[in-house]
Every structure is written in C-alpha cells, then in structure tokens.
Design a protein around this nucleic acid. Sequence first.
DNA 1: TTGTAGGCGTTATCAT
DNA 2: ATGATAACGCCTACAA
Lengths: 318, 318
Amino acid sequence: MNGNATVDPDIAVRVREAARELDYTASPLARSLVLGRTQTVAFLAPDLANPTFQSIMRGLGHAAARDGYRLLVSDSVEDATEEVPLARELRQRCDGIVLCAPRMSDAELQQVTRDLAPVALINRDHHGGEAPIVATDHEAGIRPLAAHLYAFGHRRMLYLAGNPSTSDAQRQRGLARFVQDHPDVELRTVKSGVTIDAGHAAVEEVLASGATGVLAYNDLVALGLISGLQEAGASVPRDLSVTGFDDIPFARYVSPSLTTGSVPGRELGEHAWLRLNALLQGNVPDLDVTFRPRLEVRASTGPVPSARVDEHRSEHDR
Amino acid sequence: MNGNATVDPDIAVRVREAARELDYTASPLARSLVLGRTQTVAFLAPDLANPTFQSIMRGLGHAAARDGYRLLVSDSVEDATEEVPLARELRQRCDGIVLCAPRMSDAELQQVTRDLAPVALINRDHHGGEAPIVATDHEAGIRPLAAHLYAFGHRRMLYLAGNPSTSDAQRQRGLARFVQDHPDVELRTVKSGVTIDAGHAAVEEVLASGATGVLAYNDLVALGLISGLQEAGASVPRDLSVTGFDDIPFARYVSPSLTTGSVPGRELGEHAWLRLNALLQGNVPDLDVTFRPRLEVRASTGPVPSARVDEHRSEHDR
DNA sequence: TTGTAGGCGTTATCAT
DNA sequence: ATGATAACGCCTACAA
C-alpha cells in the first residue's frame, strides 16, 4: 500500500520494493476519478503570444509546481466568444482554473466563476462575485505616464486604445481624470488593438493627429508604432514621444528603449496561485491584491518638439 | 446516449435535450479511464522563459487544439536532472508527449522514448530511437552567420557557447567546418550560457579576447552581450559585430537590430504535433524533418574596424 | 432497438 | 492489522 496507514512496516517495505522492481506507479487517472482531484489546474489567457500573459503563466506554473500541481494551458487566440466554453471544458479536466479574461462581460464572469469554482481571476475589476482577484491598477498606472509626457511639455496627446476590456477601460478612466486635472491637455483617443501589427497600422492616424505624445495601449502596440514611425521617417522621441504599458522583458532592449508602466506578471501569477491553492485546500484565500505599475522612464519619450531645445535637457539625458 | 449508434433518433433527441437542460456533460476523467485516452498531450521544455520555446509551445498548442487535444506544459527550469522524472510524470496524465530536451543523454533519451511512447522529439540528432524528430539544422544554420562576418572582413571570431546540448554541439561542428574551409580565421570558443545574463557576464572576456566578430549561442545571449558592451562604451557594430541565433520576435526591434539565424519555432511545434498525432491515431508519421535556419542580416554586424571604412559599405547599409 | 452487467485502476469503508 | 467490497462515472458488449 502506497499511502500511509496502520500497516505492518515490514510488509510495507516489501510492497514498495516490489513496486520499484516492476516500476509500478499508481495511475493518476484512476486516482483522480476516485479522489475527485487531478492535481492539475488550468490557465486561460486571451493570447499566449503576448509576453505579459507568458510571464503570468510562468509565475503561476512554477508556483503551482512547487505545490505539486501541473498546468493545463490554453488561449482563446483573441476570440472572445470561445472563452466561456473553453474555460468550462478545461475546468472539467482539473481542480481549478485561473482566468485571464479581460473581455468577458461581468454577467458571464459571475456565472462562470460560480459554475467553475474554485477560480482565481487576473486583471478584473471587482464585480460582486466570490472569486479572488489579483489585479493591476491600470487606472493609477497610466497617470504617471501621462504626467511624464506632461512634464516634457506635451499637451497634445493621443491614446491608442486596445480592445474593449477591463484594463482598457481602466486606462481610459485614468486618462480622463488626468485631463480633468490638466485642462490644458488635449487628449484624443483612437481605437487601435493589442498587437505589434495594430501599432504599425496606426502610424498614419498618429501622424495626422498632430499629437506629440502617444500613449499606446501596451508595449506591443508601442513597438509596432515606433517601428512604423521610423519607417515613415519620423524620429522617436525627437518628433514624437511614445509610451507603452506592461514592461515586457525586451522593452529595455528595443530601439529606442521604451518608457512604460511596469506590470509584475510573475507576481500576478504567483499570487493567483496562492489564492487558488487556498481555495483548493479549503482555506480562505488572502485578500484581493492590486499591483500599482511602476513608471519606467527610458528613451522613447523626450521634450515636445516645439519646446526650446535645452528645456528639460537634464531630465531627458540619462 | 451521446455517441452515434443504432438508436431511435426520436429518443436520442430527447436525451440530448434533457442533457442540455441539466447541463450534463460526460466526465472527461471517467471517459479517460475507460477509453484509455485523455485528449491531452504534454510539452516539456528546458525553459519557458525563452521565447523560442514559447513559440514552439504555441505552434504545438494551436495545432493540437485544432484536433481537439489540450496541452499540459512544464519546464525543467534548466535543471536537467529533473527532466526525465518530470517527463515520466507528465506522460502519465496524457496520451503523448513532445520533448524538447536538448541536454538529455542519448541513452536516457532512448530509454525515455521507449517507455513514454508516443513521443515526438524536437531539436535532437537521430540517435537510433523510434520517435519522430523535428529539428533545426544548427550546423548548417551557423555557417552563413560566420560567412557573413567573414565577408565583412572579420578574421578573429569568438563563439559564446551555450550549455552542453545537441544544438550547441551542432553549432560548434558547423563553426569547426567553417574554420577548416577558411584557415585564415582564428576562432576561439568561450563557455557562456543561454540567458541574457550570461551574455551580459561575458563582456569582459569578449573585450579581452580581441575578437571583432562574436557569434552568440542565441539571441538572448547576444542581447545581453550587446547591452553590456554598450554600457562598457563599446559600439556595436562599429567596434564589434555580434550575431545571435533563433530570431526571437523582438530581435528586429532591439538596438541595434540583431543579425541572426531564424529558427521557425511555430513550424517546429506544428510539425511535432503532426507526427505525434499520427502516432496517436495509429498511423505512420511523416518522415523526420529538419529546418535550415535562414540568415537574417540586420544591424548588429558590420565591417571589421581595421578595414577601410567604405569597404562593404553598400552591403552594410540596409 | 433497448436494457443491463462488467470492468477501467484506484481508494475507502467495513467486517474480520 | 488485514482482507474483501463498493464506488468513482463512464463505455462496451451482450442479452433481451
């Protein structure tokens, strides 16, 4: 007998030896069926090609592995309609699920978290459900970026919106508040997307807008935009300043290195695991936690072109 | 009854309706136990933080999803000793496994592929086993990089070796052959690693070596090295040329953009799935396939410093 | 065509 | 302390 019980230690040893010789291992499937647990949890994200979700996944996966759980992963390839059925299907094969579903409606989410419990949520606003939430404060996170541009003299700003989602709504809210506090700022919002290509495709609109400071939805969009601007002969940050969001691992190595808001993906994943695991063990999970992104000033932002060249100079260099 | 049989279509419809109302779903666990298949496959890689393995994973995951299979993922966090037990454990929960285990010995691998069949291998040399192999020809892939440096006038080259692995051995072999064909090339090899930090740590040794052309084990190492060189006041490619390997998604956006050998991660994953799926269906898999990396000339390489400035100029620009 | 028994590989419970 | 048995939820084969 493999577990611990009230067995003659003598025979227990013999059994273990025999098991080793035949290299016998209890079938996890059969155990799962009878025990009602699979030692597996699922992770669902919109797009695993996005480095931010990757780092969340790794944080989650490593944390879960330390507690003896395996990770079942899937992405909805940015097809929001597939998210709910996918989540349900995944959940059937495991003991719990971590959901990164920024575009799911509150109603769907509430239903799903009830049906699929235990569930941990990443980057969602509180919606009245039971599931623990580990989140990023995008609203608070984007204001320092806007303020940073403002300090460089930028007054005509453009926000490249992502797909409708929790985080996009939060960022728009943060920017709206910023504009309230700074009435001299003229902010336009243009729908873009969440990928490098989306950023690349926004070049014309950005140039036509006359904005000098562009806040991209995320680092990918910023990268695509900068790349496109350079192809169009515009210099960043000389002609235009661009900020990203997320601080993906390569944001510091791109050219110019990206001024961005740093989102702690690994921590998000780890804290999601902590809470999901508590639920799995029948404990009450830690309180919801929200991380405030850190402003990461790099080289993609600089003084507004019309400003005197030497103004803010010391702030710009280094 | 949910499957198709010789049932009265009338009652079949009624059953389905009832199932829908009660939102009943057959338990995948129980089905798995009795059917002997889980509709899940595992993917094991050394380090999921590496963008190359990520793209392999995504290619594999999406291809498998199209055929109704889910993906169980894990990495050995660069701890080679854990690879075999991890693979065995993963395999118990699923129907097959795709192994990215470049450091496993041939003996271990042969044993593992027998025990864990069906198995598909990524980036391994043929070792006499049965498992289908989808690979990258690193030996052929690195020669164009060396030749590219050579054409720029570089004669003192340095190879930053990764961890001992199939691909590292292949690259060393490729370079050795290149040197045979070009006796005027002086090639040194220095052990480095596979991460950005490893590249960063190699700065002093690289500068001390007097080499003008550095071939890094992969893009990550190249990135770290370039970043360190710039901090040390050296200019790339003016003072030193650096090449990477893999062509990770951001290689074109870093500064300077990276000259590298492009490895088709997504295709590797997809072809691995094709073969594993064939095995799962009892068919004979396609033949082993090897991809030849494409030389991707970008901005991190240029003429050797001592060469006349205008030499190779046209080749350098653009 | 439809119902029923048996078994997949475990674990847990209950007599012994 | 130990051995037998039911049950987990499903599928398949066989009998009705």
